[in-house]
Nucleic acid binder design. Structure first.
Lengths: 211, 211
DNA sequence: CGCGACATCAACCGATCGGCTGATGTTTCC
DNA sequence: GGAAACATCAGCCGATCGGTTGATGTCGCG
């Protein structure tokens, strides 16, 4: 952005209620202008090109063009706009992908108004803003290399998980204790970046570890 | 088998303890002969061809050649032997596949000795023997066509499950109650033949519903 | 117009999971 | 000879899941 005191904003969310709420929140405040709204990722990319906003407030999960894809598209074509992800839950599994895709910040919708304003100003200047929960997740993601191949034992456990086997059954199947099974699971969750066994199975399929 | 009073048996299990236990159980009883043992599916197929037993007592989960594959192989090549699956848990997710593959019976290892003897004699005559738990699962599997395409809503829920989303989050994401999410899940578990969300994700990937 | 498939919701319950902290022993590799 | 990765185990806890039963409303097909 330039030295302009006014920061132009594009609102992207599939819920009209949320869009209205955000618009109502920013419109009356000096220093902000709402250029427009979009209800999905595809529309977001179009409007961003047409309106050239300073900051894009973006929800992630939307029907018809996910937010992460939109971010990737925008940064890919070297858009000037900074993307500030505004999501409902910190547990959202798209957190890291969104940041990897090029989001400048990541906030929860229940953040106080002032925090939102501050965040948008910070984003407009290219500074990163993260909600505490997201920040802590990031550091742990860095602390643990996250990726890395699964060990043989972990793959065994995962294969059984994919068959709907309970931890107790896996334990007996592999002649180890349930505690050990849980340890293996915790480790492979970290390695796969998965939150639970279902997500772990999905990631494993995506990466060709299973199936 | 013929009119011989003696029924020849092949024992297949990866646990030496179990093999010994079964051998010790059948050897001393008039009317049974233990022809040999195998510790995995591949070996089972080889020994079955070499020894030509009347009945094969087979565990399902084994390292190096699963029991189900072995059964499929045996029936595929028109083997004379009847396969009686002997597994530890009734919750074993391979139950139906094993029976589909051609197993003559399905028993739990904690079955009383006499029940085991009876089952082997029955299997030798080609009669089906199922443990109560397995039997009841079968009827429910028949009662519900099991298969069938997922509804659009069910696919939506499943996709979120694959991302590690909790039921509560899915509920808010889709603007429905948690109860409804659980209902959808219960339905799609039945349709996919999965026991839990992890297994459902795996089946979905296998069938190309996800990924 | 009834039947079946689908979507929605409720309340309850036991079983299971996942997180946490901390520990021990082995192997492997530099 | 120590660091690093791996495998093993324990106990505690709150959160979540899955099963069950039952109910309501909608839609389309014959």
């Amino acid at each position: 952005m330039t030295d302009d005191a006014v920061i132009s904003v594009l609102i992207v969310d599939d819920h009209p209620v949320v869009r209205d709420g955000l618009r109502g929140m920013f419109e009356p405040v000096p220093g902000f202008t709402v250029l427009g709204e979009a209800s999905n990722g595809v529309e977001a990319v179009e409007k961003a090109a047409a309106l050239d906003p300073d900051v894009i407030l973006m929800d992630l999960r939307m029907p018809g063009g996910s937010g992460v894809d939109a971010i990737r598209e925008l940064t890919g074509r070297g858009a000037r706009a900074k993307v500030l992800v505004l999501t409902t839950y910190d547990t959202d599994s798209d957190t890291l992908p969104a940041i990897e895709a090029g989001a400048t910040g990541y906030l929860l919708k229940d953040a106080p108004r002032d925090e939102l304003f501050t965040a948008v100003r910070a984003a407009a200047q290219g500074r990163t803003v993260l909600s505490p929960a997201v920040a802590s997740r990031l550091v742990s993601a860095v602390r643990a290399p996250a990726s890395g191949p699964l060990s043989a034992r972990e793959r065994e456990v995962l294969a059984l998980v994919a068959k709907g086997t309970s931890n107790r059954e896996i334990a007996r199947e592999l002649f180890i204790s349930e505690a050990t099974v849980k340890t293996h699971l915790t480790h492979l969750y970290a390695k796969l970046g998965a939150k639970d066994r279902a997500a772990a199975v999905a990631v494993a399929y995506d990466r060709g570890i299973l199936g």
